[in-house]
Design a protein around this nucleic acid. Sequence first.
DNA 1: TTATCATTGTACTGATCGGTACAATCTTGG
DNA 2: CCAAGATTGTACCGATCAGTACAATGATAA
Lengths: 186, 186
Amino acid sequence: MKTVYERADIVPLLAEIFRELGYEGASLSRITERTGIGKGSLYHFFPGGKEEMAAAVLAEVDAWFEQTIYRPLRTEDPHQAIAAMWTDVNDYFRSGRRICLVGAFALDETRERFSTAIGGYFLRWVDALRSALMRAGCLQEEAQALAEESVAGIQGALVLSRALDDTKVFTRSLQVLAKRLDAVMR
Amino acid sequence: MKTVYERADIVPLLAEIFRELGYEGASLSRITERTGIGKGSLYHFFPGGKEEMAAAVLAEVDAWFEQTIYRPLRTEDPHQAIAAMWTDVNDYFRSGRRICLVGAFALDETRERFSTAIGGYFLRWVDALRSALMRAGCLQEEAQALAEESVAGIQGALVLSRALDDTKVFTRSLQVLAKRLDAVMR
DNA sequence: TTATCATTGTACTGATCGGTACAATCTTGG
DNA sequence: CCAAGATTGTACCGATCAGTACAATGATAA
């Protein structure tokens, strides 16, 4: 018996493991144990080993946000795009039960390994949100501050809701942040 | 030649290492390498091994916040205590160059190990801040929401400023959060 | 001084780490 | 069908992991 995978099927499984265990905590044996995928397959699709696996996960996360969140913020109706962002983010992070892999990597030495990917993810999120806010009537400085506050607020809500083990903290935080943006968009 | 330590001298060194490397990333060999303290000494003071070391670090962090931040928020003049909180937090986290160990532990599986310590740290922070806000004239619900938003905002600012590698993001975020509290305290 | 006890450096253990080698198995195109 | 290449399971590698054992060294008090 032999199960055959594609690289595209493996990346989401890896993502969940890195999310739960962190980069250092995700050992090859725990990856094979949780996914049922042997080392042979893993090193066939990711010859660069664990670092390439994590890089692939980061790239997929980035692509999802780029397509689902950033691009609409930059190009579509700002009110609609921002409203969609709040609901998409709440769904994506499963009301705080799921963490932001990029944010978690930013906190420990893993940051050094993936600094450009991590920096780009947050830089483009803030930029895209600022763009939407400016098109909705905000001045540049105010839009920049609000965008930073929103993105940071999401990350902080993930930390706090997980620490308190309370998904309501996350959902409520998102509502507060959303209302703040609504208040300045005219 | 033999250097003699006390447990109280070791804990801050361990704290810095866990902060930079995370719980899984902080191996015994890297601890001895960075601190110059041998395994003999470490297991003499912390017979429970790495887990006891991390628990001691968490306890010291908690004690520092309890004494420096939480207690003043609960018992002293709320305006002064809140103002002191912002400056103390900015100093403690070195304008975002230093991370919150408790917040970082909350994000990966390390949370399971120390869930009560992690939950207590954030619960008491939010409670203390809410207490100060209520004494300053806030209604309970508003005070609770603002306290959660402030604590989460600090954690998020740490993530974002580290991801963007920009201490100004952290300091500016703290100023924005501080002004929001000032605005509702009358 | 000497006896006692706390503290430390070093050598060691078995387990697990990330990674490699490679033959066996599957899929696919001719 | 068969050949070629893609994919996988398993055994293995040296390095490092957390933790233990213990003798040597330091401080302390009688």
